[in-house]
Simulated assay, not measured.
Amino acid sequence: MRTTRRDLFKLGALAAASAALPGLAAASGSAPVERAKKPLDILILGGTGFTGPFQVQYALARGHRVTLFNRGRRPSPEWPGEVKQLSGDRNTGDLAALRGRRWDVCIDNPTTLPFWVRDAGQVLKDSVGQYIFISTISVYADGSRPGIGEDAPLAPYRGRDAMAETRETLVADIENLYGPLKALSEAEAHKQFGARTTIIRPGYIVGPRDDSDRFTYWPRRIAQGGEVLVPGDGRDPVQVIDGRDLAEWTIRMAENGTTGTFNACGPDYALSTDAMVHGCHAVTGGAARFTHVPADFLEQNGVDLPIWVSRTHPRYGGYGSVSNARAIAAGLTFRPLATTVADLLAWFDSLPAERQAAFGAGISREREAELLAAWRAQGA
């Protein structure tokens, strides 16, 4: 999954604007959840971002005891059960609240910096059983080829001192540092926790609570109707995973004590760009019609539409077809795309008007019309 400097700033701003807004309960579904055979003591580092609240909610429904560790800067949702809150700051090494306690498993959600894993490991390696690190498919050295498996080479770090990297240095060079630093964070996890380590590498995470607006662009735009610009020829592969599917599977991995490395990409079938947009249209309805515009024309005009990556892209062409066979064999399941789209739109529609107006992904209707006119002017 590509992460740019613009993404990082936008995610921070939008998360601050909507973290305390409705959506968790409305989007979580009402189907009963079976209790786990053995309740666990689970420590979640973070827990108030995108997928963390879904982890908490599912863990509580399964009968587990949950502790959160974070800076306490985001309002927490109203949990359907008791959740312990510990405060600290990994940026400054303030991990005192974690000392002298024990948990069966630790889930590390927000980490990109290796020193965060090192410091947490020094405190927790004798205090937790399993350590689950949420990584990214951006760790791979070659994102251009299809079918990337978990054993593919990882992106090398070319800086001076990975342990000296900070959020500020990461933001300054996100394109070149994000993947390599995640890869080194994985290595540090193995160094600190050894065979007790689980690495989960998602691609695009979508669904309710997604403040990036990347996937939301498509059902929202399609719901508006009219002529919709679709990038490429419609055959480029797309992979997305509902944040709830990722969160719930992570808890089940903890319950099963499953270790190893897994690509958490979805769905469990080949999804094309055309299938994605028509799937969104099946949910939204309306008089939308789709016009395909070639990737090279979009590149010449500086257009980078969210979620979509051309299969011929020299650096990221394989990001829509990463192998998820190992994760599926380990129990990863996916709810229907239609469910994700419907729940996502319901959540987005529940946000205040000012948040909806601050939509931060894709292109404007005006820019879209300009591009379509320019494409036709070329004799398309």
Score class of each variant (00 low, 15 high):
5 R>P: 00
9 F>I: 12
10 K>L: 15
13 A>S: 09
16 A>K: 14
19 A>I: 11
22 P>H: 02
26 A>W: 00
27 A>M: 01
27 A>V: 08
27 A>C: 12
28 S>N: 15
31 A>T: 14
34 E>T: 15
51 T>N: 00
54 F>T: 10
59 A>Q: 06
60 L>R: 01
71 R>N: 02
74 R>H: 13
80 P>Y: 10
88 G>S: 12
94 D>V: 09
100 G>P: 04
114 P>D: 13
114 P>K: 14
116 W>F: 15
124 L>D: 05
125 K>P: 00
127 S>P: 01
128 V>R: 07
131 Y>V: 02
137 I>W: 03
142 D>L: 02
146 P>K: 01
154 L>T: 14
167 R>C: 01
168 E>I: 08
174 I>G: 00
175 E>T: 11
178 Y>W: 06
180 P>N: 10
182 K>E: 07
184 L>V: 11
188 E>Q: 15
190 H>V: 10
192 Q>S: 08
193 F>S: 00
195 A>P: 01
198 T>V: 10
198 T>D: 01
199 I>H: 07
201 R>W: 06
203 G>D: 06
206 V>R: 01
206 V>Y: 09
208 P>Y: 06
209 R>V: 00
209 R>E: 04
222 I>T: 09
230 V>I: 15
231 P>A: 05
231 P>G: 05
234 G>P: 07
235 R>M: 11
239 Q>P: 12
247 A>I: 06
249 W>D: 02
254 A>M: 06
258 T>C: 00
260 G>R: 05
266 G>P: 03
268 D>K: 06
270 A>N: 08
274 D>M: 01
275 A>G: 12
275 A>D: 14
280 C>P: 13
283 V>W: 08
283 V>G: 10
283 V>R: 05
287 A>V: 02
292 H>N: 11
293 V>S: 04
293 V>H: 04
299 E>K: 13
300 Q>G: 13
304 D>W: 11
312 T>A: 11
315 R>Q: 13
318 G>R: 06
324 N>Y: 11
329 A>C: 03
330 A>R: 03
331 G>A: 13
332 L>D: 03
334 F>N: 03
338 A>F: 02
344 L>V: 05
355 R>H: 13
358 A>E: 07
364 S>R: 04
366 E>D: 13
373 A>W: 07
375 W>T: 04
376 R>V: 12
380 A>Y: 11
